[in-house]
């Protein structure tokens, strides 16, 4: 579904189009963003992003180990992640994973705790510990969706966890296709591990998820962090690819929310209010 994007919110924003590690000198890397075919080239260590249809060279940037581009004039800077400046953290990508579903569905899945016992069985959840207790959702002054006091029993919450415990989460939807998760570190209790999921909207029904991990190094090596993320995401992928329809319906009556979905209800409303339509099925009026 290569329909054209008309959402200014997305056209005038930065998006990841490649992991720098997947680029080789002088080997063109083809990808697609918002239905537009692109080629990323690395030549004498300079990176260039070119539109296939017009041949225009787009504005690009390198940050957090990724190549970023914007199809139009950027209205704002790339998301700032303060934890990426802390020297005692691993800063790694969890791998760029293509998923045949709207990126908005991928973001919503990332916000969802109820599926842990069924999809991440034995890791992030386990029957019969299935209850999602009430948590708080608000829209921040920066216009982000913030969910706090999220608690869930997890048998193996992180690569170093030895036993099950109730884990506390904070979720934050920063932009329509970007969501972050903050999780208490098992060793340094006062600090949080951060996973930011940057979703590249390939087209309305396809995305590439680029999870960016900022984990405290203490007691953990980078490869373990990365492989844990890949294990978890590999469990989500087949479920996401079996969601019908592939785009996220914004009509409140398209699907049946329950109290556990408070954050996704807010997310869908927030998308509606911001007139985001790309990757969504707009609400019937």
């Amino acid at each position: 579904m290569a329909t054209h994007c008309v959402d200014r919110e997305l056209l005038n924003d930065w998006h990841i189009v490649a992991d720098q590690e997947s680029l080789s000198q002088d080997v063109p890397f083809s990808t697609r963003l918002l239905g537009v075919d692109l080629v990323v080239r690395k030549h004498s260590n300079k990176i260039e992003v070119v539109r296939n249809d017009t041949g225009d060279v787009l504005k690009s940037a390198e940050r957090y180990g990724f190549v970023w581009t914007c199809l139009d004039k950027p209205w704002r800077d790339i998301i700032y992640i303060p934890e990426a400046n802390e020297a005692d953290r691993h800063l790694v990508s969890g791998g760029s994973i293509a998923v045949k579903v709207s990126g908005l569905r991928a973001v919503e899945n990332f916000l969802d705790m109820g599926h842990f016992p069924f999809i991440h069985t034995g890791w992030l959840g386990e029957e019969p510990h299935t209850e999602v207790v009430p948590y708080k959702v608000e829209i921040t002054p920066q216009d982000e969706v913030l969910a706090t006091e999220c608690k869930f029993y997890q048998p193996i919450a992180s690569p170093t966890a030895k036993e099950g415990f109730v884990v506390e989460y904070i979720y934050k939807v920063i932009r329509p296709y970007t969501v972050a998760l903050y999780k208490s570190n098992p060793i340094q209790k006062g600090r949080l591990d951060v996973i930011t999921l940057f979703v590249q909207p390939v087209d309305e029904e396809n995305c590439v998820a680029h999870p960016y991990l900022c984990y405290l190094k203490e007691g953990m090596d980078a490869a373990t962090v990365r492989s844990f993320m890949q294990l978890i995401f590999a469990q989500d992928k087949p479920i996401l690819e079996n969601q019908v329809p592939k785009r996220l319906p914004l009509d409140p009556r398209a699907e049946t929310p329950i109290r556990a979905d408070a954050v996704s209800v807010s997310y869908r409303r927030w998308l509606r209010d911001r007139a985001v339509t790309y990757g969504a099925i707009p609400a019937q009026i």
């Binding site: 919503e108 479920i239 079996n242 969601q243 019908v244 329809p245 319906p249 699907e255």
Partner: peptide, 23 residues
Amino acid sequence: LHRGVRLSIGINDGRELKCQYHG
């Protein structure tokens, strides 16, 4: 009806069909 996941990947326990996603 909850999140649109195909029930054909669900589990038939002989009496009920259980959705894979949220059970």
